Simulated assay, not measured.
Amino acid sequence: MIDALMPSQTRSLRNLVVRQRTEAASAPAQVPLPAPAPVAVAASAAPAAPANTTPGEAPSLALAIQFEPNSSRVRPASGAVLGSLVAAMQSPELKASRFIIEGHADGRGAAEHNLRLSQERADEVRLYLVALGVHPSRLRAVGKGASAPVRPGEPAAAENRRVRVVTVE
Score class of each variant (00 low, 15 high):
4 A>I: 05
4 A>V: 03
5 L>T: 00
5 L>A: 05
9 Q>F: 06
9 Q>L: 08
9 Q>V: 04
9 Q>N: 09
9 Q>A: 12
10 T>C: 03
11 R>D: 00
11 R>V: 02
12 S>F: 06
12 S>C: 05
12 S>M: 05
13 L>S: 11
14 R>T: 08
15 N>T: 10
16 L>A: 08
16 L>D: 02
17 V>N: 13
18 V>D: 07
19 R>W: 11
20 Q>D: 11
20 Q>S: 14
20 Q>K: 13
21 R>Y: 04
22 T>S: 02
22 T>I: 01
22 T>H: 00
22 T>V: 03
23 E>V: 06
23 E>M: 00
23 E>Y: 04
24 A>T: 11
24 A>H: 09
24 A>F: 09
25 A>S: 13
25 A>G: 05
26 S>E: 09
26 S>L: 13
26 S>I: 05
26 S>F: 11
27 A>G: 07
27 A>F: 01
27 A>I: 05
27 A>Q: 15
29 A>K: 06
29 A>M: 12
32 P>H: 04
32 P>D: 13
32 P>M: 08
32 P>G: 11
34 P>Q: 01
34 P>T: 08
34 P>W: 08
35 A>N: 07
35 A>F: 04
36 P>S: 09
36 P>G: 15
36 P>D: 13
37 A>L: 01
38 P>G: 07
39 V>W: 14
39 V>A: 14
39 V>E: 02
39 V>Q: 04
39 V>D: 06
40 A>Q: 13
40 A>S: 12
40 A>K: 11
42 A>S: 15
42 A>Q: 03
42 A>K: 02
42 A>C: 06
43 A>M: 07
43 A>K: 06
43 A>L: 11
44 S>G: 07
44 S>N: 12
44 S>T: 14
46 A>Y: 06
47 P>V: 01
47 P>K: 03
47 P>F: 06
47 P>N: 08
48 A>W: 00
48 A>V: 06
48 A>D: 05
50 P>M: 08
50 P>N: 07
51 A>I: 00
51 A>E: 05
51 A>R: 02
52 N>Q: 13
52 N>Y: 01
53 T>A: 15
54 T>G: 00
54 T>D: 10
55 P>E: 08
55 P>H: 12
55 P>Y: 13
56 G>C: 10
58 A>T: 02
59 P>C: 11
60 S>M: 03
60 S>E: 03
61 L>F: 07
61 L>S: 09
61 L>N: 03
62 A>T: 08
62 A>F: 00
63 L>R: 00
63 L>D: 01
63 L>G: 04
64 A>S: 14
64 A>Q: 10
65 I>H: 11
66 Q>H: 10
67 F>A: 07
69 P>D: 15
69 P>W: 04
70 N>A: 15
70 N>G: 05
71 S>Q: 07
71 S>G: 05
71 S>W: 12
72 S>V: 06
72 S>G: 15
72 S>W: 10
73 R>Q: 14
73 R>W: 06
